[in-house]
């Protein structure tokens, strides 16, 4: 049966993609801030300052802050900070509304309610209870992901939503690793693993104590844990193959060769040495940026037929 489900407007596809990105961003940020806020307790002032710098760089926080807690508060509940969790939830809601005809009622309902709740939270309400806030966000986002998985057709609309989730996962992990590698002091790699919820997964997969080389290789190369770089890239590649398959042959579209090349490289069984990591991350980052442009040019802005220059809806992070 051929159905109209195969038609996705360019604007709707863009909204779905950003919906996925903002939902994933909210969840990932909640996880990272939660872990760091916890580790800060009882640590040295130097360590706190260093982590504050890292986190503010990862999430492009451009204001002054007096402590890590102050920073975390701004990145969580301040709606005027464009990279805060609250802002992400708001943007997720706007995009969901714009793609209302392409997502399921239950998924929409969850986002609508989450938005209503989060927009009512005030800074003082959670001043000393950010952990509660993070667990609410993590729960909501996970519920949303679950509802999307179990209530939506696996059509093109789904692929764009799913693409957004995976691109954001990749984006945040790359940022995290790049910042952590910049540090001149030995990093707490257990905290890094826990930031993506992968500490236990690491132990179970490797049966080894956590060290820098092991953690980096796990986070970059491991296939069996879903949030690693390779796992995200493999899923992105699958989604794109599904989407490209439906395109007219005349358009002659192929995936940029960078993506399969990087995947092949990560799949190579030889472990990456610590000395090579920075260059590898650099290359993965530029591949990621290139792919983000590819999504825009291919799917979201086929405006070439028009004389009108419409402003693009979504901001880009960097």
């Amino acid at each position: 049966m051929t159905s109209r489900g195969s038609i996705v407007l360019a604007r709707t596809a863009e909204s779905l993609y950003w919906l996925g990105r903002y939902m994933e961003r909210s969840e990932s940020m909640a996880r990272i801030l939660d872990v760091h806020l916890h580790e800060i307790i009882g640590t040295t002032d130097d360590n706190e300052a260093r982590w504050s710098d890292q986190i503010s760089a990862i999430f492009t926080y451009e204001r002054d802050y007096s402590s890590f807690e102050d920073l975390a508060l701004g990145l969580s509940l301040d709606g005027s900070v464009t990279s805060s969790i609250r802002h992400s939830i708001e943007r997720a809601y706007e995009n969901a509304k714009s793609a209302r005809d392409a997502i399921s009622l239950e998924y929409w309902e969850l986002i609508n309610v989450a938005f209503g709740r989060v927009s009512r939270y005030s800074l003082d309400q959670f001043g000393h209870g950010l952990f509660t806030f993070y667990s609410i966000i993590k729960e909501r986002c996970a519920q949303g992901r679950g509802l999307a998985v179990s209530t939506m057709n696996r059509d093109a609309a789904w692929h764009f939503l799913n693409l957004g989730y995976n691109v954001e996962q990749l984006d945040i992990l790359l940022r995290l690793l790049i910042e952590k590698r910049r540090s001149e002091y030995p990093e707490d790699w257990v905290a890094v693993l826990r930031s993506i919820g992968g500490h236990e997964a690491f132990l179970r997969a490797t049966n080894a104590p956590v060290n820098e080389l092991g953690a980096l290789n796990f986070l970059i190369h491991e296939k069996i844990f879903p949030r690693t770089i390779l796992a995200s890239m493999l899923r992105i590649s699958n989604i794109l193959n599904e989407l490209i398959r439906g395109l007219d042959e005349s358009q002659g579209l192929l995936l940029p060769p960078e993506l399969p090349r990087e995947i092949a490289r990560l799949e190579h069984p030889l472990a990456t040495e610590v000395g090579e990591v920075d260059q590898l991350l650099e290359e993965l980052w530029s591949c990621h940026l290139l792919m983000c442009n590819f999504y825009y040019e291919t799917f979201f802005s086929p405006l070439s037929q028009s004389n009108f220059n419409y402003p693009l809806r979504s901001e880009v992070w960097r």
Partner: peptide, 22 residues
Amino acid sequence: PLVEPRDLFAKGNEIFVRTTKS
């Protein structure tokens, strides 16, 4: 589909909608 005006354009007295596939 639910469309907004910027999703539509006219060409040769016909109206088209921009989708992800042309």
